[in-house]
Design a binder for these strands. Structure first.
Length: 421
DNA sequence: TCTGGGGTCCTAGGACCC
DNA sequence: TCTGGGGTCCTAGGACCC
């Protein structure tokens, strides 16, 4: 029995999700935009060929988009999240050793029988995922996560090996690492890429064979681990149980610039509610609340950004209580005379909500508040988001994030399901 | 006119304590 | 004038990921 780690990565995931429900998009250039319809965050192969780069602001590439009839979508996270769950279900058909790494990829612990190659096994996984979801993916297989990533990116980039590359053999590793630019290694970003280039290290193979102490000194333990992993020594084990979140943020850019505190208040209240709902779903209470506001950093307007953090005497998961805190926080940092572009709410020091200590004062009121939240959550679950809400929470303001080209929520919203005429 | 959002980990350095 | 050593805790900031 042979063992290895595989990374399965959905190709152009958001674009692929859009294509699942609209096959007319196949073969066409397609892009998906970030929140507020700002930047390109997913591109089809055809869009890439038009030089539409990752992260490009839409307004800067509008000419290319129009000249080539590029299909443009706002991001539809309900749809992508739902398809992501279906991908994971497919993975579990093959192994219980699944680490969901992000919305579009997972590490799998693989075991094969002597008469089965990793590559054949990988092809089976790829086929099953496609059959179940309609989403194409690529796989890399090797001894460590970092090597598997190298393999997966290599097969994707060179459209080689039908999207499944087994890189468990050492001689193969050396030749692929040699052809891999060092910035393509998982964990090497722009800053480290530059540092390494300065030292004459431009390929993944050179990094693998670099002096350990030098790397440890200049790229801290993170870099040292990368080198070990490239040498086939696993430092990043598969994590089957996801670690509990340490923080949760809800922040958005505004659709229009906001000057007055009344509108900021509405936005902050909406973000607070979202963050609190997410925490209650995960049964976690927050001990620290932080809010921030900022102007548009790209504009020539006077700039201001600030944040404030409150440590709560008692952790809470009640929207009611959190709203009071974030409202107070906003008063503290709001300065008139600026045009605000963005605000956000962050919850920290998350602790299990069932283990909250009894409060010395006001515990009864807190319990009442929690019962209220429970009822609110149930109603909203049954009848849809914001069926009941606090008065401070007013969605639909001018400030709301733009989302003009969202496809239908085919899988999560009953009145948006696909119709067949 | 229009430029995303949500995370993690690691370290240096300051504050503070004995 | 001379001015220790070691520990902990916290935060800000850098780097990376998707």
């Amino acid at each position: 029995m042979a063992q290895a780690i595989a990374i399965v990565n959905a190709n152009e995931f958001y674009v692929s999700c859009e294509r699942v429900f609209d096959p007319g998009l196949l073969g066409r250039p397609v892009v998906v935009l970030s929140n507020n319809d700002g930047c390109i965050i997913s591109r089809s192969r055809e869009a890439r060929a038009l030089n539409l780069t990752m992260g490009a602001p839409l307004f800067k590439v509008q000419d290319i988009v129009e000249a080539n009839d590029v299909a443009v979508f706002s991001s539809n996270y309900q749809l992508y999240g739902d398809l992501s769950l279906r991908l994971v279900e497919a993975f579990y058909e093959f192994t219980p050793d699944v680490e969901v790494y992000s919305i579009d990829e997972a590490f799998l612990g693989l075991e094969t029988h002597p008469d089965q190659s990793f590559r054949d096994y990988g092809l089976e996984i790829k086929a099953k995922v496609y059959q179940w979801t309609g989403v194409p993916c690529s796989l890399g297989i090797s001894q460590t996560k970092t090597l598997s990533k190298v393999a997966q990116r290599f097969t994707k980039k060179h459209a080689a090996a039908q999207g499944v590359l087994d890189l468990t053999d050492q001689a193969d590793q050396t030749s692929v690492l040699e052809e891999t630019p060092v910035e393509d290694v998982w964990g090497v970003g722009p800053a480290y890429g530059k540092l390494l280039a300065g030292a004459g290290i431009t390929t993944a193979r050179q990094l693998r064979d670099a002096d350990r102490r030098w790397v440890r000194r200049r790229m801290i333990v993170v870099g040292a681990r990368i080198v070990e992993e490239l040498r086939g020594i696993s430092c990043l084990p598969l994590e089957r149980c996801p670690q509990a979140r340490k923080s949760v943020t809800c922040s958005r850019s505004f659709g229009v610039l906001v000057e007055f505190i009344e509108e900021l208040r509405e936005a902050v209240a909406v973000y607070t509610t979202k963050a609190a709902e997410r925490r209650r779903r995960a049964r976690l209470a927050a001990g620290v609340v932080r809010i921030f506001v900022s102007t548009n950093r790209f504009s020539a307007d006077p700039q201001y950004s600030n944040s404030v953090t409150f440590e709560l005497a008692y952790a809470t998961d009640s929207t009611e209580e959190l709203l009071a805190w974030t409202r107070k926080a906003l008063e503290r940092i709001y300065r008139p005379g600026y045009r605000y572009k963005k605000a956000g709410v962050m919850l920290n020091h998350l602790t299990p909500a069932d283990e909250l200590t009894t409060r010395l004062f006001g515990d009864e009121r807190f319990e009442r508040s929690r019962r209220l939240m429970k009822a609110v959550d149930e109603i909203n679950r049954k009848f849809g988001r914001d069926t009941v809400r606090f008065d401070a929470v007013r969605p639909g303001g001018r400030w709301e994030t733009k989302c003009l080209r969202r496809s239908r929520r085919y899988t999560t919203c009953l009145n948006e399901v696909l119709r067949i005429a």
